Amino acid sequence: MLDRKTLTFDGTDFQLDTYFLDKIGDFDKVVNHPLAIIIPGGGFNFHSDREAQPIAMKFASEGIHAIVLHYQLLKDGKSVYPAAVQQLATTMNWLKEVQAEHQIDLDKILLVGFSAGGQIVTNYNSLMTNPDTAKEVFKDKLNVTPRAVIVGYPVIDLEAGWPGDDEKIKQISPNKLFWHSQDTVTKNSKPAFIWQTITDQTVPVRNSLLYASKLEEMNLPFELHLFSSGRHGLSLATYQTQEPGGDKYLNDQVSKWWSLCMNWLKEIKVLPIN
């Protein structure tokens, strides 16, 4: 069931949409479930609904709790960074507070980002898993660490084709630390599942390649899927996220990313094999 939760960081409120799985009364033992924190895209100007609840419900159907983070956007003269990463860190710490109530497996937290949200996720996977940079960004102790990240058609490098405007890049972050999330990957970064289409005309596929190349250089586990055709923003690429009256967000081949991702989660032991 959807429930809206308000958290606060540095005097600013932000919202979470939570989709916690109900406890199964038939079981005598506590069953702790993995949890996915979903970071939708929207060019840092809005939060795409197509990459929010539909994704959360898919995770729930796989036995994974889900949370949608409504992170700091470009508005009222505010930058996205560092607030978006700080809000994600605050959310991670909050999970420890509610772990027992909602039966969360804190060793199996997934960060899931689409498009611009993918850059928030990959920045977190670089900066907040490194103790040195984590202290620069977030003064509080980090009580929960992600197990892995999943990114679809992600922005990785703000100078690799999107947004393509120097002024907007500076608005997104006046601090260059957040511009190139591949450059700050360390041995502490977590495994990644990456997917995109090579015909993406909004965020060039170079972004995914840059990230995968850096993960390979650091000898970190990852899985990369590049589909031969498809537009940006496909989300699930099924009828569940298609635009009414059209088919531009339908792509049968690309929709297979979901089953590929679930198989990967089994491979890295976030989900059971059977």
Rank of each mutant, 00 (worst) to 15 (best):
Q53S: 13
Q53W: 00
P54S: 06
I55H: 15
I55M: 14
A56H: 03
A56C: 13
M57C: 01
M57H: 01
K58M: 13
K58E: 15
F59H: 01
F59C: 01
S61P: 00
S61H: 14
S61D: 15
E62D: 05
G63Q: 07
G63W: 04
I64W: 12
H65W: 03
H65I: 07
A66E: 09
A66N: 11
A66Y: 10
A66L: 09
A66M: 09
I67L: 14
I67Q: 06
I67H: 04
V68F: 02
L69K: 06
L69N: 09
H70Q: 01
Y71K: 13
L73V: 06
L73R: 01
L74P: 02
K75Y: 13
D76L: 02
G77N: 11
S79Q: 10
V80E: 11
V80T: 15
V80I: 13
V80S: 12
P82I: 07
P82C: 06
P82K: 05
A83N: 11
A84G: 02
A84L: 03
A84E: 03
V85F: 11
V85T: 13
Q86H: 05
Q86L: 04
Q87D: 05
Q87T: 08
L88K: 08
A89E: 06
T91H: 07
T91R: 04
M92C: 10
M92K: 03
N93K: 04
K96A: 14
K96W: 00
K96Y: 00
E97L: 14
E97Y: 00
Q99V: 07
Q99R: 14
A100I: 09
A100T: 12
E101I: 06
E101G: 01
H102M: 00
D105N: 14
D105G: 03
L106I: 13
I109W: 09
I109G: 01
L110V: 05
V112N: 07
G113V: 08
G113L: 09
S115Q: 02
S115R: 06
A116L: 06
G117I: 04
G117L: 08
G118M: 08
Q119T: 05
Q119Y: 01
Q119P: 00
I120W: 12
I120K: 06
V121T: 08
V121R: 03
V121H: 01
T122Y: 08
N123R: 04
N123T: 12
Y124I: 06
N125G: 10
N125E: 09
N125K: 05
S126V: 02
S126H: 07
T129G: 03
T129E: 11
T129C: 10
N130E: 10
N130A: 03
P131R: 05
T133K: 11
A134E: 13
F138T: 07
F138W: 09
K139Y: 11
K139M: 10
K139H: 13
D140V: 01
D140E: 15
D140Y: 01
K141Y: 00
K141H: 07
L142R: 12
L142H: 01
L142F: 00
N143I: 02
N143M: 10
V144A: 04
V144D: 05
T145K: 14
P146G: 04
R147H: 14
R147D: 02
A148N: 04
A148V: 02
V149I: 15
I150Y: 15
I150L: 15
V151N: 03
V151M: 06
Y153W: 10
Y153F: 14
Y153Q: 13
V155K: 05
D157C: 12
L158V: 11
E159T: 14
E159G: 07
E159L: 14
A160L: 10
A160Y: 00
